[in-house]
Design a protein around this nucleic acid. Structure first.
Length: 595
RNA sequence: GGAGCCGUAGUUCAGUUGGUUAGAACGCUGGCCUGUCACGCCAGAGGUCGCGAGUUCGAGUCUCGUCGGCUCCGCCA
């Protein structure tokens, strides 16, 4: 038991006045040391926190001498006696600040090289070097807290789902490539030369098959893989809380999801989030917030001015409004003092989303200041001001363009203005369900309709008749859950009839043979008594990022990858031996970057 | 595929209009110190200014390229 005759009795961070006079054995890392020539203080740290240990030459000279050699991040074990700190030396900043441990026995397990960066919370270190030495970065209390809280959240999910009769079932990691949707990570097969597995983008098809098998309620907290570009909230491998239920409708899945969220927040933050969460239909979310993941912690709503714009003399507006485009306005309440430069910055912001310009009006007490006001008649301008509820001191913005550009640009502008006005409270958790998504989305690139959610999503029954005649009109039985403007999950009621599934593939312009080759096993399975079913997948990483108030998903993942998908720690991905390639009948062609 | 920001000591940063030997703090090494807690005091070591070209009498500073990190657009059923 133990190490070198030492058996741990406590974690450093847990020593309290109740332990006074007890003999304790502690293991940990030297966080800091203060050598006064005589007495030496060491802050000994483990995952639970820090406790001060004391070496006194008058108590044990040999230990004291050895302790003078201790340096930052040495790994040691000690046996000693807990005592109250002398009067006037209590440290109220430490949970263990009333006590200290007088050391009787010291074992040095590992010395430490000079650190590549200070393992101290108060030093902001470049993320590149943090990731290279991630194991040291993870020693910091903030990262320990993040990883441990993540565990608590995941465990809360398991407890809750177990209590609701869900069964955790593993699904394959080596599976079939289905090029619909995200790009797959491919794994070459040695036994079937020239063929490839794909890593799952989600367990979607397998969990549907599990419903056909009668498991009724399935869940899994599992890795998913998507070979797409990374972002602050996107990693190539990420963790989903994935679940599926039979004999249910939207409300059932949403209720379970709310139960999960409630459990996570209770077990991690101790907060009651109080379901049911509010719901908004997709079209309304776009119309009011310019986003299908609206941050509803603040209002700053968009206003549709297209009808007014149709009759305006301002060509930029009326030509767009009369040719299928939209003209929307946004009242940046009280922002009249925005400088020319600030407005230019915001113009650059909307340009990212394709907006060709950003019209504005400053509403003063007795006049309007604006480059565009001269193009409007008195009545038109009055109706615009009225629509935007403009008051003196307000700054009004307008974008006229294709619907997607208008929504994206003003949606982003809305968020930026909220940020500048500090309208968002990180301690508020504002959950919103977004429902009634369109089933399809037109793809200019593919020149066909694509599934907005995925091709297994059930259409709303009353829209089923338009599946062939007017796909754009068909709504999906899909729902996303958002938190503070972040999509944290999405799901749907699935198609459980093979004939409907086949119609769906046809609507997506996927030929029968192709559908059979790619998804034949699903279509077939749906022919053997498939129950009505639906489910959802929640992004654990994103949820934890919000709970922990981090900016990046990387800070809640133990070993994340950089923006280029590189693991700074291991250097993956790396070159492999020609022998390995030969076994797979693979040959690397000239790399794209080499000319 | 595209846009922007960044790269100077182990770390975090400063470095003026292009001008002598590139600085500070922390850390590190040595010494002193018996109640500190981001201890204190003294001394010291530590730099190919990411890399490569170019402009210039002279480049950390300007230009171009390149590598790497970050943010965003596209992409992410």
């Amino acid at each position: 038991m133990g190490v070198d005759g030492l058996v741990r009795t406590d974690y450093c961070g847990n020593i309290r006045t109740s332990d006074i006079d007890n003999e304790v054995t502690l293991f940990g890392w030297v966080q800091n040391w203060r050598d006064h020539g005589g007495v030496i203080f060491i802050d000994l740290k483990d995952r639970e926190g820090i406790v001060q240990i004391v070496f006194d030459p008058s108590v044990n000279e040999k230990n004291h001498k050895q302790a003078s050699k201790l340096r930052s991040q040495y790994c040691i074990g000690i046996k000693g006696r807990v005592r109250h700190r002398p009067e006037g030396t209590v440290n109220p900043n430490l949970k263990t600040g009333e006590v200290e441990v007088v050391v009787d026995e010291l074992k040095v397990f590992s010395q430490s090289d000079i650190l590549p960066f200070p393992v101290e919370e108060y030093v902001n270190v470049n993320e590149e070097i943090r990731l290279k030495y991630r194991y040291l970065d993870l020693r910091k209390p903030r990262m320990q807290k993040n990883i441990i809280t993540r565990y608590k959240g995941a465990f809360a999910v398991r407890k809750y789902l177990d209590s609701q009769g869900f069964i955790d079932i593993e699904t394959p990691i080596l599976t079939k490539s289905t090029p619909e949707g995200a790009r797959d990570f491919l794994v070459p097969s040695r036994l079937s030369q020239g063929k490839f597995y794909a890593l799952p983008q989600s367990p979607q098809l397998f969990k549907q098959l599990l419903m056909v098998s009668g498991f009724d309620r399935y869940y899994q907290i599992t890795k998913c893989f998507r070979d797409e570009d990374l972002r602050a909230d996107r990693q190539p491998e990420f963790t989903q809380i994935d679940l599926e239920m039979s004999f249910v409708a939207e409300d059932d899945v949403m209720a379970v999801t709310e139960g999960i969220i409630e459990s996570i927040f209770k077990e991690t933050l101790g907060i009651d989030v109080k379901p049911p969460f509010k719901r908004i239909k997709y079209q309304e979310a776009m119309d009011r917030f310019g986003s299908d993941k609206p941050d509803m912690r603040f209002s700053l709503e968009l206003k549709n001015l297209t009808d007014i714009a149709k009759t305006a003399d301002f060509k930029v507006f009326n030509s767009v409004a009369n040719s299928g485009g939209l003209v929307y306005g946004l009242n940046a309440t009280g922002c009249i003092n925005f400088s020319r430069k600030e407005i230019d910055d915001l113009t650059n912001l909307v340009a990212i989303y394709g907006a060709k310009g950003l019209a504005w009006i400053k509403v003063k007490e007795n006049e309007l200041q604006s480059p565009i006001v001269k193009f409007f008649g008195r009545e038109q301008m009055d109706s615009i001001l009225k629509a935007l509820n403009a008051k003196p001191g307000d700054l009004l913005f307008f974008v006229a363009d294709k619907p997607k550009v208008v929504y994206d640009a003003l949606g982003a502008l809305r968020l930026e203005i909220a940020k500048r006005l500090k309208l968002t409270d990180k301690n508020e958790y504002n959950f919103v369900w977004v429902t009634d998504f369109p089933l399809f989305e037109w793809s200019d690139e593919e020149n066909r309709f694509e599934a907005m959610h995925h091709p297994f999503t059930s259409p709303i029954a009353e829209d089923l008749e338009y599946l062939e005649s007017d796909p754009a009109k068909v709504r999906a039985r899909a729902y996303d859950i958002t938190l503070n403007g972040v999509e944290i999950g999405g799901g749907s009621i699935r198609i459980h009839r093979s004939d409907v599934q086949e119609r769906m593939f046809r609507a997506l312009n996927i030929k029968d043979e192709e559908a059979k080759a790619k998804f034949g096993f699903l279509i077939e399975a749906l022919k053997f008594g498939a129950p009505p079913h639906g489910g959802i997948a929640l992004g654990l990483d994103r949820i934890m990022t919000l709970i922990l108030k981090e900016e990046s998903i990387r800070d809640v993942i133990a070993f994340p990858k950089t923006q280029k998908g590189v693991c700074m720690l291991t250097d993956a991905p790396n070159d492999v031996d020609v022998k390995q390639l030969n076994e797979l009948s693979l040959k690397v062609l000239k790399k794209k970057t080499e000319k």
